[in-house]
Each structure stands twice: as C-alpha cells, then as structure tokens.
Design a protein around this nucleic acid. Sequence first.
RNA 1: GGUCCUGUAGAGCAGUUCGGAGUGCUCGCCACCCUGUCAAGGUGGAGGUCGCGGGUUCAAAUCCCGUCGGGACCGCCA
Length: 579
Amino acid sequence: MIRTHEAGELRASDAGHQVTLAGWVARRRDHGGVVFIDLRDASGVAQVVLREEDLAHDLRAEFCVRVTGEVRRRPAGNENPELPTGDIEVSAGEIEVLSESAPLPFPVEGGGELNEDVRLRYRYLDIRRAEVAHGLRVRSRAAYLTADVMRAHRFVQVETPYLTRSTPEGARDFLVPVRLRPGNWYALPQSPQLFKQLLMVGGIERYYQLARCFRDEDFRADRQPEFTQIDIEMSFVSREDVLELAEELVGRLWSEIVGYQVPRPIPQMTYADAMSRFGSDKPDLRFGCELTDMTGYFAETGFGVFQAPHVGAVVMPGGAAQSRRELDGWQEWARSRGARGLAYVLLDAEGNVSSSGPVARHLSEAERSGLADAVGARSGDCVFFAAGTPAAARSLLGAARLEIGNRCGLIDRSAWAFTWVVDAPMFEEDGSGGWTAVHHPFTAPLPEWADKFPDSPESALADAYDIVCNGNEIGGGSIRIHRADMQRKVFDVIGLSAQEATSQFGFLLEAFKYGPPPHGGIAFGWDRVMALLAGRDTIRDVIAFPKAASGLDPLTGAPTPITPAQRREAGIDATPTPS
RNA sequence: GGUCCUGUAGAGCAGUUCGGAGUGCUCGCCACCCUGUCAAGGUGGAGGUCGCGGGUUCAAAUCCCGUCGGGACCGCCA
C-alpha cells in the first residue's frame, strides 16, 4: 500500500505517529501562511495542515494526493467535535500529487440537489458524494447480511441463465440476437421464476440468488429496465415457512442497517381487506384515513351519481378549510387519474354537512344528517366520495387517501409499517371476456379452492403473499402448483390450450412429470428495499450505474446504433430456418 | 400511447404572468491578499447560442407552433 493509515480512522491516540495518507482534496482553506486541507478517502476525512505555502499552492478540489506527516493533537480550542477525527490533524511534511482534477462539473462536497442527467453523466463523481456512497455501502452490507441469513438456513446459492427463452406472458422481453442461429433470439429473463422451479424439481430444496432481472417496460421512479431481486424458493414448505424465513431476513436487515426491530410476526391482512379498507394492494399503514363503504348508505339515494354499484368515501381531516381553488384542484387531480371527478362535501363548525359544494344539495336531509357519523368525520373535515365499480372507486379513493396523507402531513416519516397482504385473487378479467392470472399461472390456489377454482374463477383465491413496507410492495411470492392436473385446470381457465402450454412452458411441464416436490418461494425487490434502508426516494440512488428515466445511460451513451457489419453478423434481419 | 412539470454562465436558482439592451442571486472557477480554519475570510476578474428550429412583432429568455433532453404520473410492468 502506498499509505500507512486511513484518514477517517485517525484518533488522538495516534498523536506523535508519522503517517502516510492517500485520498482526495475535499476542501482547501488557504490562510496564506497556513493552509488546511480536508483529505477524504473511503474511510472518512482528516485535516491536513501545511505551513509551507508552496506545498499547498497548486492543490485544488478533488486532486488525488499522498500526504506524509505527523499526527498531532490540535491546539487547544481548535478541536472540531463534529468530526470523528476532529481531535487531531496531520502536519504535512511532504505532499505528492498523484493525479490532478479538472474543474468539477458539480460540487462533490456539500450535497445539494442536482439534475439527474449531470449526475449520471459524471456518475463516478456522484459516487464520491456522500449520499450515493452511503447507498452503495448499505447495499453491500445488505447483501452480506442476506448471505448470512440464507447460509444459516443452508440455502444453496445458484446462478441462473441470463440468456434464455422468450416467454409470451408478462412484460416485454429484452431480446438478444444469436449469431450462430441467425434469426433466432435469446431473451433476458424477466425473473428466474421458471428456473427456480426447475431447481426444486432438481432436489436443491432451498435456493436463493441475488438475481438480475430485465423488463422492457416504461419507467417510473422505482423502475429500471434491469433490476435486482433476492430470489428464494423452498421445497416441502407451507406458506408459513416462507413467511417466517422472509421475516427473519427483513428483521435482520432492518435491525442491523437502520437499528429498527421489526415487530414479528408481521401482521397479515387479506387482499380483500386491503382493497376495501385502503383502496390498495400495498397499503401504507403509517396513517389511518381508512375508506368507508357507503354503498348501503346511499342505496336509496336520489342523487344519480351515487346510484352506482359501489360508493366509497374517505375523510380529509380539516379539509373543509380548503379554498374553492384547492377543491377544484382535487377535481383536476382526479381527472388526471382518469376519473370523472371527486365528489365532496364539507362539514361546518357544528359538524353538519355544509350546503356549499356541488354535491350537498343533491342529498336528502336524512342523508346529510347521518353522513358525518357514517364516515367517521368531524367538524371541519372534507369527505371525498367515489362511485362506480368497486375496483375503480376504491382505486381512486386509495390514491386520494395517499394524497391526503401527504398533504396533511399525516405520515410519520420515521415510522416503519410492515404488513403481509395475503390471499390475492387467482384470476382477473382480461378485458375480452376471459381470465388471466393475477400473479403467474403457476401460483397455487388456497387449499380450500383447490377443487373449485375452475367453477368460480372470479372469486378463487391464490396461496400468494406480498410483503408491504410503508406503502411499497417490497416482495411477493406464492406456493406453486406442483401437480400436472391442477396446472392443466389453471391453463384451461386462462384459455391456454394444451398445445399453447406445451409450446410456451413445455420444458417446465415436462419437468413436472418427474416427481416435482411441493414448493413455494418469494422474491424481494432489492432496489426498493435498499432505497428504503438508505432513506432515498428513488432506486437510482442505490444503483451504481442506473439508466435515466428515458432508458438511456448518459454516462456511456448506451444504447447506440450498431454498424451494418454488426447487424449482418448478429443475424438480426435473418429469417429463422425451421428446425 | 397519454397527461403534467422542467430546461437561463461549470452547478443550483430568480427573471417568463403583463415582450423593451443577457438584468440578477448563491456556489464554483482564475489572480492577488491573508498564520488556526473546518461551508474560512477579503479584493478584483473571467465566464451566456436564455436546450434547438421555425413563426408573430419595430423588438422575444418572455407570446405561438414544432422538436430534443431531464423529472413525475396514468396506461403498461404475469
């Protein structure tokens, strides 16, 4: 090593020692006769003092330097209690510039908001900044912790292929041309789902992997075209076994990284409860404001808008004080989400329904007088309503609830609220009279639905579970189907013929002929978990080299066009020869 | 595929509503001064295709149309 010590580890006990440090010039404070340099390396920062001006004169921010000198206690009164190394400084005898830095495109020190594209274009400088550096270190610690937990339970870590077969369901695949088979294409895996089930057939019994997944879909703040899952699959287990392992992992991560003891067991609610109480399959339980079902209350109403299959309500505490402009803003907000609007009534100081607003005058006296009690609202509150199909109304109110939580400051930003959401439907309507799998077609029904799901697919429930933290789905999984007859029935429900099933999933069905064990598993959205643990709003801050929201990488310029020669060689335009 | 926000000096912003000389702020950069700072301080200076193209106008950062980049959301993401 070209250094003897790391800057962030020096303490008063090192005083008197001659040390050599190597790192970057974080800050320079030039007083003429005396110059202070904050020398930063991966371990932290230490102050270097120079009295010979020529040593320091040409140093600039982010120069990479080596410093040799003596560690000394700072003069009395000059200690800096803000810094771990604040009791000492290094009196430089020699400074060597290992490499110079051009003027910076943005400040490395000092934090502050920056545009994403300039951060990504100079990602290596962004990584020097404390926020991203912290995020990457959190991520690394979490990976080690996960390995600890999984190894303690004798899980086998297996790497599955990145070059695999395109499957028609789910997200769009990223495709890779194959030079040796012109016109044929690999797909990058959307997840290792099928491979991990094959590993169970293979008798591995306990599998886990930090798996990179690829989906060619549009972006969100919490989505990247390539992302990471902690992928887990276990044989001979029931749902409870999977949940227990997942809770141990989550408990370990939260306790060791943010010092929070996750209460266990993590509470469970059914999907049906989550939708009716919170209007979401990933409820944020850091605050209340639960939805109220008002369908019965308005069963006889004369108000046309409320003559709907479902009427729901959510209360905005203190919302009656909103200006007309703000209330109109909610209508705009609702329309931007595809709703026709968001009906509301205001409660006056006496707790009575105010006659102002476009809805109140359509309600009968009886409807108005009992309303506050029916929705649990108090004087000064605003009550929002949505009417329509249960799904649409609840979805709108669920989104309104989150908006209320944010606008009214009801969310405790330091809180952690975990829940399992279990028993999701197996199927949903596909919009053209048929059914499609909510999760994936290998998800087993709950035991009580094992025989009857084909007869009432609209209400059949799956043995599936999602883990939710602060309104984020951080993981999900299910017990899988392991019997060919049941799998056949699921394919029947979703309209997949034997021929289609064979052509799409034939290799899995073939494998399941050879004594497949009962099995189930879970996968965590690792990037989102890391963002939560690192306290960041976007997963881009916990990914070393993320793509911008356009899918482009401002650092490398990828993706790029290819040359005609590359195009020919890759066989992109070739017609596949029948095999 | 759709909606919204945004683009002004190396960085972060104000100026755009209601057109009038690139007008300004903070940081950074360059030079000089300065012996105890830790966001050091002081003096002076440099730095601009107001994203790009077109239009309206005597006159456009500002208004209109188009386009590109960044961000958020809806759809999508088994």
